[in-house]
């Protein structure tokens, strides 16, 4: 299967191309630069270097969130529009699942997380089985302190992975992966995860998984409750 994978859910930008299920090209940057400007040139470059023409693609896999709203939207919009134009399926992969894949040889629990401001993180719990990760606890938005306490109570070794590790280092302590490269999700992991997924819904319905309501919406709901 020929797959294009896209991740713009954090400051990490990843583009990968699989040809016949093998990595033919992969590019990862971690810089505070604009995804909207850089994503399409990156896709063009990786595809050209991998000698892959758009019409040869069988599928597009996209990091569907959680992460930066705007970032996720850039990846999802690009992925779904390309898929629609080419008449191929698009599948969403959790950006946390893709990050957890970096712990695929770890014996214990894997907790990938992305900073969500005000002491909160987007996170979930994964476990390695036969060199692949599977989700054991849903992705969620939670106060990081609360999450760490919850995970520790499981009394199992735990591996924390995050592009925002520096911001939360004290909290996760020595359980974070040591190699800095392991804290950046790989787009090829999105491609592999996406290859296994059943492309269920129509391309038109494909949308980000924000894991959080828009602020105006939650405020409005709160106001409604107060009125009651």
């Amino acid at each position: 299967m020929n797959v294009l994978a896209i991740d713009t859910s954090t400051y990490v930008m990843g583009v990968a191309v699989l040809r016949d299920g093998q990595v033919a090209g992969e590019m990862v940057t971690h810089v505070k630069k604009n995804h909207s400007i850089r994503l399409m040139p990156a896709i063009r470059m990786v595809m050209e270097e991998a000698d892959m023409k758009p019409e040869e693609l069988d599928r597009i896999a996209v990091a569907e969130g959680p992460g930066s709203y705007t970032g996720v939207r850039i990846g999802v919009t690009t992925g779904k529009t390309m898929a629609w134009a080419l008449g191929i399926p698009v599948v969403g992969v959790s950006s946390l699942e893709a990050l957890a894949a970096n712990g695929r040889y770890f014996d214990g629990l894997i907790s990938p997380f992305i900073d969500a401001r005000r002491g909160q993180v987007f996170t979930g719990l994964y476990r390695s089985r036969g060199g692949e990760v599977e989700r054991v606890d849903e992705d969620r938005l939670i106060l990081h302190e609360e999450w760490v306490t919850y995970v520790r109570e499981k009394e199992e070794p735990v591996l924390f992975l995050s592009p925002d590790l520096l911001k939360h280092k004290e909290l996760v302590g020595a359980d974070a992966a040591i190699n800095p490269a392991d804290h950046l999700g790989r787009p090829s992991a999105i491609a592999f995860a996406g290859m296994k997924k059943e492309p269920g819904e129509a391309v038109h319905l494909f949308a980000p998984n924000y894991l959080r309501m828009a602020e105006a919406e939650s405020k409005w709901l709160e106001a409604q409750k107060e009125r009651e």
Partner: peptide, 8 residues
């Protein structure tokens, strides 16, 4: 981004 994806 939709336009760029379509054009590409």
């Amino acid at each position: 981004n939709a336009a760029k994806a379509l054009a590409f």
